[in-house]
């Protein structure tokens, strides 16, 4: 593994640009992924924030669903924020009936659990494994984790709800570190990519 990992960002829809900036700040090379073959060139993958129903539809339409599932199973490090967290959940509540996910974390995620846009909020969140005080949690129509399996590690809780989880090489947060200037969680993920 090279010291400067190449981290893909699934670039079908969502806040791709902000993840690029955060990854660059965390000493990774960011690279857009929209086609299956582009997955061969990355050491890790970010699933950005966006609209999860749209993203899951586009993943299907453009033939990425199975290749992405294969990568998750093969242990490619992945990090999902908000819609990305939903994509990495084994099971989703309040999604569309036909909503496909990649899976990767043994958890049940409830979509838009914190409410509609008027309920979107910012709050300080302590994240296990992130030193130097709480991160600025930006929650936008955010999901929460309803329950996690024994092999998943809860990294953060807000108001009694799990909002950050790691299982093996897969990391997920309900909130959007990419919308803040604080790149500590991206740095943690880039470390995961480096260690693989």
């Amino acid at each position: 593994m090279s010291r400067t990992p190449t981290v893909g960002v699934l670039a079908l829809q969502g806040d791709v640009r902000e993840h690029f900036i955060a990854l660059a700040a965390a000493d990774a090379v960011a690279s857009p992924v929209r086609r299956p073959e582009e997955l061969d060139e990355v050491d890790a993958l970010v699933i950005p924030g966006g609209e999860s129903t749209t993203m899951s539809k586009l993943v299907g339409v453009f033939g990425l669903l199975e290749p992405l599932r294969e990568r998750v199973r093969a242990g490619l490090p992945m990090y999902g924020t908000c819609a990305g967290m939903i994509m990495l959940a084994d099971k989703v509540l309040d999604g569309r009936d036909d909503q496909e996910t990649l899976g990767g974390i043994d958890m049940i995620v409830r979509r838009n659990a914190f409410g509609r846009q008027n309920d979107s909020f910012e709050a300080a969140v302590e994240v296990k494994g992130v030193e130097g005080g709480p991160v600025d949690g930006v929650f936008i129509r955010a999901p929460w984790v309803e329950s996690v399996g024994a092999s998943a590690d809860v990294l953060a809780v807000h108001d009694g709800h799990t909002v950050a989880v790691r299982q093996g090489n897969v990391l997920a947060t309900s909130f959007h570190p990419e919308l803040t200037g604080d790149h500590r969680i991206h740095a943690l993920f880039v470390d995961m990519a480096r260690e693989r």
Binding site: Q13, E18, D119, E122, A123, A124, V138
Partner: peptide, 23 residues
Amino acid sequence: ASQHPETGTARVKRGMAEQLKGG
């Protein structure tokens, strides 16, 4: 961000639009 949850901040308003990009 403060310790107490804040709704309607510029960041959550603008951030919402960031989530729609490419769509």
